[in-house]
Design a protein around this nucleic acid. Structure first.
Lengths: 218, 218
DNA sequence: TAGATTGTTAATCGATTAACAATC
DNA sequence: TAGATTGTTAATCGATTAACAATC
């Protein structure tokens, strides 16, 4: 199947989407080291993937290499950047200005990539009115009105679990297409809404599971 | 294949390990709501999995249900807790006391589950000596000596990318079996070391990819 | 007992990999 | 040209699902 035909059926498999940012990161590293060219075998070696998988992943989007040569690092980097949508900016709102929310708002790398936190909301009256990183913290009751006036691509939920579904509903009702969820809750959203969960505790539990795994063996 | 036999071959598939914490979280919610019993069909409905997948996942570890009845919520919760290793505590060190590191150290839920940050390290002389949450922040040069004197289960890396491999090497050299990595780097570790990556930027890029996905379709 | 739901098997589906013709 | 490596096909592998006998 050619890449053109492949694109027609459903979406891109999630495994592919998971690996693209990994490729991007490593290619950026190579470029910063002044490496100009790389083969799928070399990429695979460095990232613990097979060469075939890397070529297969890239072929969903086009032909970026050259037989007998491999890939031009700068060129491939440019293609993957575009594929991931890095050729534009994204407007974000952050809900929840606790320790984690503040850490996210302070993280410069997001803005550098074009992901801009444009407003911060919290319930805590003590926090409201304070400047943090980019913005004044606003009362959460104003989230709905803000979203009506300001088109927003990504809503970041960094609230305690018991309010996150309510916040999510407000975001969805105002057509925010993407949710970045840091609360320990399985959010209910319509099919068309895109959600990425950062479940920190789940990740820790995967560590403790693997650490104790031998116990479950015979 | 019986669960007993299944356990003999390699490890548990990573998909199963990913879903166990999700089951745990939802079962906890049910228990807190006073729900005493649940079927695989109900679990699947709530979490968008098939009932068969849930039964298949659980069967890796034993038989926890009853035909015609389903699962006792408390009992299943107890089993999954043990499977995930929640019947003990874990000693952790945190390296990197920036915004994100501080947020992690302040997060009470980890400690409640038995994941205890026992020491914090940073390069920044201004931070060193300050108390944060549980512990005094120590100079990173003392990490090696600390690990030699204090058995540690999990090393948390919340440093800038350019030093994270060095920190990782110190952790590995001192037999820390698990790494929880928040830095935007693909760490090189021996096969037996267990690594969980929280790559925040990768997660954002998956959002922007999905948001722009239709552009790549015909 | 009749109804419900498990745990497991066998069938299906999808993802990964090996192989290779094409070609730089 | 000879050597290297792509993009793609076909084969393999593993994960998911549907179906059902067992049984509470």
């Amino acid at each position: 199947m050619s890449s053109r035909e492949r694109r027609k059926d459903g979406g891109i498999p999630s495994g592919v989407v998971t690996r693209l940012p990994i490729y991007l990161r490593y290619l950026t590293e190579l470029r910063d080291q002044g490496v100009g060219r790389v083969s799928s075998a070399q990429l695979g070696e460095a990232l613990s993937f097979t060469a075939a998988q890397i070529r297969s992943d890239l072929s969903y989007f086009g032909s970026f290499g050259q037989q007998g040569y491999g890939y031009d690092v700068d060129e491939l980097l440019m293609h993957i950047s575009r594929i991931l949508g890095l050729n534009r900016t994204y407007a974000m709102v952050l809900v929840g200005a606790g320790n984690l929310g503040k850490a996210l708002a302070s993280y410069e790398n997001f803005r550098k990539r074009g992901f801009e936190i444009r407003a911060i909301f919290d319930v805590d009256e003590i926090l409201v009115g304070n400047y943090h990183a980019c913005c004044v913290i606003q009362p959460v009751e104003e989230l709905d009105q803000y979203l009506k006036e300001n088109p927003t691509d990504i809503g970041i939920i960094a609230t305690p679990g018991h309010v996150s579904q309510d916040i999510c509903d407000v975001l969805v009702a105002n057509n925010v297409p993407c949710i970045w969820n840091f609360s320990p809750v399985h959010l209910q959203v319509p099919d068309e809404v895109i959600v990425e969960h950062i479940h920190l505790t789940d990740s820790l539990l995967r560590l403790s599971f693997r650490l104790n795994e031998q116990r479950h063996r015979d």
